[in-house]
Nucleic acid binder design. Structure first.
Length: 932
RNA sequence: GCGGGGAUUGCCAAGCUUGGUCAAAGGCGCUGGGUUUAGGUCCCAGUACAUACUGUUUCGCAGGUUCGAAUCCUGCUCCCCGCACCA
């Protein structure tokens, strides 16, 4: 059959579309399955990362559909965001036009892959019908106090001309443009994601996310238990210094207190003293420094004495107050108690400034409490030098100190979070306008619900200067909803991560114009059963979405606790790129063949993430054009496990294309079978049941690579074997194809439809529910076992033949097979059943002694055989092998009934098989073989 | 520094959770045979070393547990990825 995927694939896509088989509605009578991929940002072209992501999701969706689930599988676009706005600034035009143009072209490419989306549910974040609900929810958050405005130091990216959330600052740089982030004081809108810290953490236990993602989220949430402790100030009875520590057990070792240089008390403490100038210098240095510089410069601990003393809350003793550059103003209370003996940073600091070091924890009882220390001991220990608490250990030690503090009202046990409120303001145009009007009289006033959405205006100039929204008088100048006096509209827009924080629920009821979604529908579909996307969203999108879902639940809008039940992070798509070993740098493909531009050394090749900058990208469109979508899909699924990095390889793609071509011819071959039933039929049928059972099991665990291996590779081998064994049953062949085509469609749906058509299917395969070939019966298993035994014998005989040829003058004519002696078989059966009954194999020699054949001079031989060969085999034999033995496999019978086949395979004239006599080399399941 | 994940036979990559179906799947590559007008596809076989009877050395390195370890334990080396003066 001629295979022209560029023609046939779009035809099937059109038919699917016309039959509307992928559009779903709520249906309580069926089990639901919600399959979702992270919706893409509409850049102009589809790249291999997209193709991989969606090939995985589509295989799952199609599988679940075939298994009778009501599958929701939508697609949409994360279409707000800076690239479009930046393009508008650079090239002119409007972000909306650019975005929609891009969406059109990427949609077309996605459709060419034949993914089974319900396009009726298409969603775009930049549509007012979507973002009005961002505004609506924002208002509800505001009412609940979950959203608020605050004047605070925030992260500012100069290049992007906007503020950023904490999660969007990576190593002091902007996550998007990688330029430096500075601190700036601004009034901004925040969401109290921190209210959900505990639940975000504990919820991780009830969802199936990869370990590394869970660990990333735990790190990010950063819960640490400890105590807040108040130190008095000697000269200021009304003030106190609150510090946070995770180690209250070291409190007696606190020999000083360190404040962040920006701490509000610093100035008060030094005012007018001769310490003031030094402090100012330190503070200015720290404030000036961006986080990025900090990382480099702050290897060195630096501080100034502030000239004042704090009062230790338990001992009442005076300890000096310092300001230190390593204390972060925004974490904890911005002040720490310094315990040099048990904290490495404090230790270095104390050494440098000659502050006393006092050991208060002992790692072991015999340690000298007064000995000089060279390094801080940071583990748990037994308290010493701690007054009445001496001798208390570890967690108890923490507890008793906290109790003591609480009874004296000098502190309390608390929990600190690294998680900060989510800063959602952005000083950019292409996002959801924050629905607020600022009135001089009334302050910030929410836009009334009936006036939503607040739409983005079109009279904007994209100059690249300032927030574009400020250039629109029609947008900015409004009257106050409360007092009707002239007021000014908020020009901040929302972080685009807001859009992606709930789009998955919106899909459940995407066309609803009266509410963000209908609760019944949301509750039917949520949560997402299978979510697939890149690891890069592990701590932004995936945390925000979890928070938002919980917040919507608490507003009574839905019941879902968690948005995503199972998360699969697909690996990168890599391709070779030039690599310089001595410079340890990956280079653009244009350097291929020339020396390293830096060291002039020779370049080798290394696998690297496909990227524009390296130029090692492969165009999906080109590959689809050359090989068809099914080949690309098969290759992508087969080249690596979904979670592993995958190396693009042209030869691999071609190999998979050959595989497709082979499959294309299968129906013709099999439908050409003209024979009737034969003894091997039972085997093939059994084998098909076995293959299906394993296939569905691995599909359920999303091991798509293994699934494809079975459906697209191993079944072909089975058919080859069936034909070798003389099978050609026409009826069975048709049955087999009918089963098989369902398994093919998960990865290669177009090919499967081709098959279905050839089989005379009048409907679309994709619309059918697949019941499977049935369960594996005992007889089925037996058929498989017998054939497996034959295969063992054949392989063994073939190997022996090669060796025999070295010793024979002419090609061998006769093959003489001897199956094992009765006594060895008996020994094997006894050994296996002894082991299966849980007997201690070391004691099996007792059993041997009772055997009639182990008496007299045979005894030594039997014991030796047992120890050396039989014992290992008793454990080595698979369950299948063991069953063969225990069920009384007739070795000679199986061989003799296939003698003709063996003779033909091994190219000999005759095959004789008999059971061996007293002493031979034959062994159970391993007959001896002799060529003549 | 903290946390997470790795290191498998020419390459890619299974298996290791529940030690024995492991000389270790599958793909690629390579070799030989068949098919074919030829190339290609396809089919069969081989691909650690040895060997007409089943042996030797292998799963990052070094030990240990066991009748038995790629799989469990201990230590070490190297690689990747997050977070990072977070108190």
């Amino acid at each position: 059959m001629e295979f022209q995927p560029t023609i046939s694939e779009p035809q099937w896509q059109q038919q699917w579309n016309e039959a509307k088989i992928f559009s779903t509605e709520m249906d309580e009578s069926k089990p639901k399955f919600y399959c979702l991929e992270m919706y893409p940002y509409p850049s102009g072209r589809m790249h291999m990362g997209h193709v991989r992501n969606y090939s995985i999701g589509d295989a799952v969706a199609r599988y679940k559909r075939a298994m009778g689930f009501n599958v929701l599988y939508p697609m949409g676009f994360d279409s707000f965001g800076m690239p479009a706005e930046n393009a508008a600034i650079a090239e002119g035009g409007h972000p909306r036009d650019i975005t929609e143009r891009n969406m059109t072209s990427i949609t077309e490419q996605i459709k060419r892959m034949g993914f089974s989306y319900d396009w009726n549910r298409m969603l775009k974040s930049h549509g007012p019908e979507y973002y009005r609900w961002n505004q609506w929810v924002f208002k509800r958050f505001l009412e609940k106090g979950l959203a608020y405005r605050e004047h605070a130091p925030v992260n500012w990216c100069t290049d992007c001309a906007t503020v950023l959330a904490n999660e969007q600052v990576k190593n002091g740089r902007c996550w998007r443009c990688r330029s430096e982030v500075t601190q700036k004081d601004m009034s901004q809108w925040f969401l109290r994601i921190t209210d959900y810290g505990d639940e975000l953490l504990s919820g991780l236990e009830e969802i199936d996310f990869p370990l590394n993602v869970k660990s990333l989220q735990q790190d990010w949430i950063g819960r640490s238990e400890g105590a807040e402790i108040s130190f008095g100030i000697d000269s200021m009875p009304d003030e106190e210094i609150k510090v946070f520590t995770t180690r209250p057990d070291t409190l007696y070792g606190a020999t000083f207190v360190t404040l962040a240089p920006e701490h509000r008390l610093c100035e008060k403490l030094v005012k007018g003293s001769h310490y003031e100038a030094d402090w100012k210098e330190l503070r200015d240095e720290v404030v000036r420094m961006s986080d990025f510089d900090r990382e480099k410069v702050l290897k060195e601990k630096k501080g100034v004495f502030l000239g004042q003393y704090a009062i230790h809350p338990l001992t009442g003793k005076q300890v000096p107050i310092w300001a230190g550059n390593f204390v972060i103003a925004s974490y904890g209370t911005g002040a720490v108690m310094a315990v040099p003996a048990h904290d490495q940073r404090d230790f270095e600091f104390a050494n440098r400034y000659d502050i006393p070091i006092k050991k208060v924890l002992l790692a072991s009882i015999d340690e000298d409490a007064e000995a000089e220390i060279k390094k801080a001991y940071t583990g748990l220990g037994t308290m010493v030098n701690s007054g009445e608490f001496d001798g208390t250990f570890g967690e108890d030690a923490k507890r008793v100190i906290i109790d003591a503090l609480e009874s004296k009202k000098k502190g309390k046990g608390t929990i600190q979070w690294k998680l900060r409120p989510w800063l959602i303001s952005r000083q950019r145009y292409w996002g959801t306008p924050i629905p607020i009007i600022h009135c001089d009289e009334c302050g910030p006033v929410p836009v009334p619900d009936e006036q939503l959405p607040v739409e983005l205006p079109d009279d904007i100039s994209f100059s690249g200067q300032g927030n574009p929204l400020e250039s629109s008088p029609t947008f900015c100048n409004v009257n106050c909803p409360t007092c009707d006096k002239p007021a000014r509209r908020e020009t901040d827009t929302m972080d685009t991560f807001v859009d992606s924080s709930w789009y998955f629920i919106r899909y459940s009821d995407v066309q609803n114009n009266l509410a963000l979604f209908d609760k019944k529908k949301a509750d039917y579909w949520m949560n997402v059963d299978f979510y697939c996307g890149g690891i890069e969203h592990a701590q932004m999108h995936l945390i925000y979405a979890r928070f938002w879902t919980k917040a919507l639940r608490d507003l009574g809008l839905s019941s879902a606790n968690e948005p995503f039940q199972t998360l699969l992070c697909q690996g990168m798509v890599n391709a070779p790129a030039p690599w310089c070993d001595s410079c340890a740098v990956t280079l653009n493909v244009k350097h291929r063949g020339s020396p390293c531009p830096q060291c002039q050394g020779e370049l080798s090749e290394r696998s690297a993430k496909m990227s524009k900058s390296l130029g090692n990208t492969v165009s999906p469109e080109e590959m689809i054009e050359r090989f068809g979508a099914d080949t690309v899909r098969l290759f992508i699924l087969f080249a690596a496990q979904p979670t592993a990095g995958m190396d693009w390889s042209d030869s691999g793609l071609q190999a998979n294309h050959r595989q497709i071509l082979q499959l294309v011819d299968m129906p013709e071959t099999i439908l050409g079978w003209s024979g009737s039933s034969s003894s091997i039929d039972a085997w093939l049928k059994a084998r098909m049941k076995q293959r299906f059972a394993e296939w569905s099991q691995v599909m359920d665990s999303y091991d798509l690579r293994r699934a494809v291996e079975i459906s697209h590779f191993e079944i072909i081998k089975d058919i080859n074997w069936y034909q070798r064994r003389g099978g050609s049953n026409a009826e069975l062949g048709r049955w087999l194809l009918e089963q098989w085509t369902h398994m093919l469609q998960a990865a290669t749906p177009h090919l499967a439809e081709d098959w279905w058509q050839q089989l005379g299917g009048s409907d679309l395969l994709a619309s059918r529910v697949f019941k499977g070939p049935g369960l594996l019966s005992a007889e089925d298993q037996r058929a498989i076992d017998d054939e497996m035994y034959l295969r063992i014998v054949l392989d063994e005989a073939r190997e022996r033949k090669q060796l025999a040829m070295r010793h024979l003058e002419v090609a061998p004519k006769n093959l003489i097979i001897q199956t094992t002696e009765a006594w060895k078989m008996d020994l094997a059966i006894s050994g296996v059943s002894f082991q299966l009954d849980g007997g201690d194999v070391k004691k099996f020699s007792k059993v041997i002694e009772t055997k009639p054949y182990a008496q007299g001079e045979m005894r030594g031989e039997v014991i030796k055989l047992w120890r050396k060969r039989m014992l290992p085999m008793v454990f080595k034999w698979s369950d299948i092998h063991k069953a063969l033995l225990l069920n009384g496999l007739d070795e000679s019978g199986v061989i003799n009934s296939a003698a003709g086949f063996l003779a033909a395979e091994l190219e000999v004239e005759s095959v004789e098989c008999s059971q061996a006599g007293e002493s031979s080399a034959a062994f159970p399941l391993k007959p001896s073989v002799l060529y003549q």
